[in-house]
Amino acid sequence: MSAPGKTGGGTERNEVALGIGFVVLAFACIALMVVDHRESHLERVRQVLSVAVHPIRVLVDLPVAAWESASHSLTARRELLEENERLRREQLNANFQLQRLATLETENARLRELLDSPAALDHRVLVAEILAVDLDPYRQRFNLNRGLANGVFVGQALLDANGVVGQIVEVGPFTAEAMAITDADHALPVRVNRNGLRTVAIGTGDNNRLRLPYLTNSADIEVGDLLVSSGLGGVFPLGYPVAHVLEVRLRPGQSFADVIAEPVSALDRDREVLLVWDTATETSAVEDPSLVSELQ
């Protein structure tokens, strides 16, 4: 389009050209949205664009990463000693629990053999770092520094040291986008650890609240109950901690109670998360062997 401020006829033609350009581009955008929403043909387009904007993600993440490495190298000796001491204690504690776990595991395997049911699956994990890139503030999503190159796939479960964090919703060549379990669009099949009661935990958009809307007033659920992943739905592996029940409000007039739970994973403080592969359904994956470890 040429410069404005021309005489009558030119400006008019200009406006028409502008209008046509707008209509064409707007239709292109709408078509793109419809296709993106309804089908999944745009995976490749997204991947290419994802590479194109990758430098921006890296640049945005840079100050945070630099600050972190600087504060790591500048930590005082006393703090390091304290941290070391604390980690030693935690290690001792964890080892103690592992000892018990080992006996329980053999016992479990023996019992399963008796019942003739297959043994629980092993899981392989890979550490991924959360990029300090803010996505839409109304949705609980984040970027990870692992992508197709590491064998990440859509629908992969994410854990941290405490429990379930979320799942992968989109994968680019070098990065992946994950949705936290507290996203308002996320639902997760869970089980009450105490009695095996199955239900669904739904995100609220608030990063430390989950809702359990499908429990009746008479359901056996109490404040403090631990919810673990039930393995139904096929995304999350069975038996990882998800949340503690925070509040049970019975609503006499309604058929369902109002149950609120608090996730056990540190969703707002995590910097590193674990990507989980179910070794039984594993696809070919290429990754850095130094970062891979076996999880019991």
């Binding site: 707008f22 581009l25 955008c29 949205m33 664009l49 921006i56 996505l135 839409d136 986008e177």
Partner: peptide
């Protein structure tokens, strides 16, 4: 004459991919 609708569409797509929105949402 230099920053028109094409620039807008391009920036919009970049924003869509960056924020994980529907492709074309910010562009539109």
């Amino acid at each position: 004459d230099r920053f028109g609708m094409l620039t807008a569409a391009g920036m919009g797509l970049a924003l869509d991919v960056l924020t994980g929105a529907l492709l074309g949402q910010h562009a539109l």
